[in-house]
Design a protein around this nucleic acid. Structure first.
Length: 193
DNA sequence: CACCTGATTGCCT
DNA sequence: GGCAATCAGGTGA
């Protein structure tokens, strides 16, 4: 997968890019220990025009990475406790991004268990994904092409359909079906463990 | 500078 | 199903 393909994946409206990230991988290798998940759940956030977006009221120190080029990583602190990761998309300055809500452990599952201090439900939530992969606020603003956090647009391991539904955990613009979940075609569970 | 809210999680009843 | 944990960012005085 070339840099051009990578950028092609992220070009276009955030609503088109978000479902495209399903099946792609998010990877880190902190401390020389590789960890990787297959993305199974995402949510799209626009900039101006999306009341639920961190960029709705314009640029601030926190959301500055959202205004950078597509492929930039935006990490924010949630509820003072958790970290949540976003893939910045769209034209530079538009401030749209895709929240990585969940995935399926693919590489370094044992390391994820260590970081999560439990054996199940390792990556079935935005805060859990960051905890399992070791992503934190210091990584915000880095390029997903150069690391330390990588977006790998590999072909999905299996076939699946994409279901869209309202975003969760928000209080504004709750009606927009901008949450995308991968549903395996064979009926088996893609749910994260 | 004080107040409030949150793109969550996990444990308790 | 309910709710505490825990604090930075954003808003308004």
């Amino acid at each position: 997968m070339t840099t051009r393909d990578f950028l092609g994946l992220l070009s276009g409206d955030v609503l088109a890019v978000a479902p495209r990230l399903l099946g792609c991988r998010l990877a880190t290798a902190f401390d020389g220990e590789p960890t990787e998940i297959v993305i199974t759940e995402v949510e799209a956030y626009g900039g101006v025009g999306d009341p639920a977006s961190h960029a709705y009221r314009g640029r601030t120190p926190r959301n500055a990475p959202m205004y950078e080029a597509a492929g930039t990583l935006y990490v924010y602190r949630s509820y003072g406790i958790h970290w949540c990761a976003n893939v910045v998309t769209g034209p530079e300055g538009e401030a749209s991004a895709v929240l990585i809500r969940g995935g399926q452990p693919a590489v370094g599952t044992d390391r994820m268990r260590d970081r999560r201090r439990r054996d199940d439900h390792l990556t079935d939530g935005p805060g859990k994904v960051c905890a399992a992969l070791g992503i934190s606020g210091g990584d915000s603003g880095s390029s997903l092409l150069d690391g330390p956090v990588f977006l790998v647009p590999d072909a999905p391991a299996g076939s699946f359909s994409i279901e869209s539904m309202p975003r969760i955990g928000i209080s504004r613009a709750v009606d927009r079906p901008w949450r995308f979940v991968a549903r395996p075609s064979d009926g088996s569970s893609l749910a994260s463990t």
